[in-house]
Design a protein around this nucleic acid. Structure first.
Lengths: 201, 201, 201, 201
DNA sequence: TCCTAAGCGAGACGGTACGTCTTGTCTTCCA
DNA sequence: TGGAAGACAAGACGTACCGTCTCGCTTAGGA
């Protein structure tokens, strides 16, 4: 069909733009990157850029769909790696993903583009965590603390740890980070969920 | 003395600028506020603005020193209000302060100025938390988790909760929020610190 | 061709700017005219202005090319009007042109923009005068005075007379002014050129 | 008396400012010189500057009074040096004065301060020339050309020659310049004045 | 095979805000 | 009390981006 071919051209343009943005982010602060620089590197006309994206930020978040897909896929891939408390959160996936793409993550954090990233990340994490907890809590809703409070607490703690880790020299492995995160977070969460920690005293 | 009088004039100008910025933040998104608008409202010349502050953001953070002083003072004021686990963190102070100034906090969060605020806030919280833990841990350093990890985890969780609370309808009291935060955070933290929870099972 | 269309747009913008400047000069002192006022009147963006011209003065002199072309054309148009001594200088053209555009000339003189104008005018006059003398002197170079001295003397005297005339009530006609100028200037010049005045004593 | 001392102080301040301006003019373009630079070099407060002079230009022309006095004095000093036609104009004085202070003259011309200088100079010259002609013409007013026309023509020609000379390498002596100027200007002028050139053909 | 509409590059443009610069006024202190 | 010091309001400057636009070229699917 015509649409398919057309779509292919469009897709190619969009990918060029996304790639250009990523490569620029690795070079300089995100908030110092100009639309002009992006389209220059992508070999794309100015109007073409605005035909596809509202603005620079729109282009940025557009790249997150693949990011989310990749994360989501890793969730399922490593679904059975989860051991102990982590099966509640799949937090290891975040640490692993951040480790693999640490260059980009770091660049985003110190480049000022992290607001959007953090917002999206928080959103995603909260949803992901909530989804997990939902399945677990289907049977008994004996919550002493509202669910949103728990999810936001966890997302915030996780993100904060992630950012500290990325800003440090990353001397810990993703697994170590996750282990520490779970040690810190799980006791309180399990208690709030009314779940007896089977490894408890 | 000459210096004193001069200082007084300078201080007055700076305060006018800070006040103008705050009043503008309460009206519109921070990142849509113009230097021109600020100086118009403050009845100040353009060059005067740049004589005192590098840019809009500099003016913003300059306002945080009083903010920090106010927080610090509240720490000591309410030092003995702390009960139970909270004496570790003084987290209640944050919730209370946010509640009192919820208009400004909210405006900052949704106005795009929160990056700086959050960064500064995180810094401050980490330091504050670390200070508290330091005094506690003076005797026995039996940490299973590095201190920075703990403080960043706590600061992130606290900030995240704070932001969720401010974005919601704030149907909980500061005390309730703090109670929930402590329930979620303390078990893991106490365990990490090697402290036996006296209220534990 | 694409280039032609583009050129046309650019030309139009430049003409709008030049027209705006001229109309403003007729209203207020040149040196009190703001770039902002120019672009407002020309319905042009600030950056567009600076894309075409370095600054206000650049725009001003850019208008002189058409001014020079017009002058040059009048030289040839009235080439045969010249009678007597004037055929040496074509000075009548200057007086006539100034008379036709006396509003603009006057505005420029009292508006502070005359420096540039005078400089350009002097340049042009010197060149024009020199060109005429060159053709005449092709045969015999029996000069008692260097040519540049003669041309600058003439250009200065002519310009000075022009400005006095414009600043006065212009009760003389261009022809009268030119007649007086020639009476004052020619005797000395002819002598310096080693030319016997056929109308001599 | 106190007043005297005060007056002396005031004079001293004004002279400091004038000296500072002159020394700056010799270093950089007049129109790029800042009030700040002037008062810095003169070791004078900003308000003091504005207490004495309206603005930079006012300070500049204030320096011309001594300039005029000096010129005027030279007129009388060299009154009897004048030989031949020059006794009409005393133009030699201008060339000599310009030669003596060629550094400052040149700086003014290329520095953009020449407008004022030229305007003042033209004024002065016209007056000076007119004064001379007046005495000469007291007896017979048989003018074929109005006096202002003559004076402005002469002033313009003289100034123009002066500027060309200053901009060139000044390979001619003041006397040579004056000689050429008189050769060019006098024939026409004498004729206009109805004076028979005794050295004529 | 040709044709026609969409995608596209190129870049001019209007507009907004920036941070810098200079001016002339005003206030405060010192000698 | 006059002058030095310098903070200040005012506002123009030239720069940097933005998002919109107009213009032809290319190109691929439907005629």
């Amino acid at each position: 069909m015509a649409a398919e071919k057309t779509d292919r051209r469009i897709q190619r343009t969009q990918q060029q733009l996304q790639a250009a943005l990523v490569s620029l982010i690795l070079e300089k602060r995100y908030d110092k990157i100009t639309v002009q620089e992006i389209i220059d590197r992508a070999n794309v006309g100015r109007s073409t850029f605005y035909a596809h994206f509202q603005d620079k930020e729109d282009l940025l978040v557009s790249g997150f769909v693949s990011w989310e897909q990749e994360l989501h896929q890793q969730f399922h891939t490593h679904a059975h790696d989860a051991e102990g408390a982590d099966h509640l959160l799949h937090s290891l996936t975040f640490f692993r993903h951040a480790y693999e793409h640490r260059d980009l993550y770091r660049a985003m954090i110190e480049g000022g583009g992290s607001d959007v990233l953090v917002a999206v990340g928080r959103q995603h994490m909260s949803a992901s965590i909530k989804a997990h907890l939902d399945t677990i809590l289907a049977d008994g809703p004996q919550l002493t603390i509202p669910l949103p409070v728990i999810t936001h607490f966890l997302a915030g703690g996780l993100l904060s740890l992630l950012m500290w880790w990325l800003n440090s020299d990353m001397s810990y492995t993703p697994e170590q980070m996750n282990e520490m995160f779970c040690q810190l977070a799980m006791p309180g969460v399990l208690q709030a969920l009314g779940i007896h920690d089977e490894n408890g005293p």
